[in-house]
């Protein structure tokens, strides 16, 4: 059959669901081993965070699309959680190999790392369903759930989201070319504009690097 944009999107959706069917809603045994190797075991905080964002995402999705679609939002979030655990495991395996380390206590107890990784996973699911595909399940075409909507849902700074994108792409080989292109567009949008909004952690990094270099002049404020 000729490939139409809707059919292509549906294929992507089916591919994502197929990949995530074998993934679990809970941390795998391998992940639990990493958690147990930590100086401070992060498992409880990870499970509480996933549960907390489940309610937040479901509510925000329903507010954006309509109260009748709350369960659809919950279903998409659950797919995102599966991808989150799958990518986290892959990341830790590659870091263990690269650093010859098994205690990832600092990273796995970093709230921003987990929030960014989870947001990126849910963004992949949302982008896969996309605007056209979302019409196929009846959500209104006027509701723009495309990036950076996800940053508002997770109350996440754009630059913190940016920090996980490349490692996410490295860790998940089954991402489609379209999805990698989407994440790359997110990166560009963040670096070109979103990361320069007031309150961005990027300004702190610039300041710290200047201080480290012994320079005292302040970074330009966005207003300038």
């Amino acid at each position: 059959l000729p490939q139409t944009p809707v059919r292509a999107a549906m294929n992507n959706i089916q591919q994502l669901i197929m990949i995530l069917n074998s993934a679990t809603d809970k941390p795998s045994d391998t992940l639990i081993t990493y958690f147990n190797n930590c100086t401070v075991n992060p498992q409880d905080s990870i499970l509480k965070r996933v549960e907390s964002f489940h309610h937040i995402f479901k509510k925000k999705f329903a507010e954006a699309v309509g109260q009748g679609w709350a369960e659809t939002g919950a279903q998409r979030y659950r797919l995102g959680v599966r991808l989150y655990y799958r990518v986290m495991e892959s990341m830790l395996k590659s870091e263990e190999e690269r650093l010859s380390v098994q205690n990832f206590s600092t990273l796995l107890n970093d709230n921003i790392f987990h929030t960014s990784l989870l947001a990126c996973a849910v963004e992949v699911v949302m982008a896969t369903y996309g605007r056209n595909a979302s019409q196929s399940d009846g959500t209104s075409a006027e509701t723009d759930l495309s990036f950076p909507w996800i940053l508002n849902v997770f109350d996440l700074k754009a630059f913190d989201f940016y920090k996980v994108i490349e490692s996410f792409i490295r860790a998940e080989p089954s991402l489609t070319r379209e999805m990698i292109k989407h994440l790359e567009r997110c990166e560009h949008r963040i670096l070109e504009s979103l990361a320069w909004q007031s309150g961005s952690p990027l300004f702190d990094l610039i300041k710290q690097s200047k201080e480290r270099e012994g320079q005292t002049d302040q970074p330009e404020t966005t207003s300038t």
């Binding site: 590659s94 600092t106 990273l107 921003i112 490692s167 991402l175 790359e184």
Partner: peptide, 21 residues
Amino acid sequence: AQDYHFGLEEGEGISELFDCN
């Protein structure tokens, strides 16, 4: 992923990006 421009250096990964080393 061939089209994607990987920017992390050889010795860099998610641990460095979140100041864990």
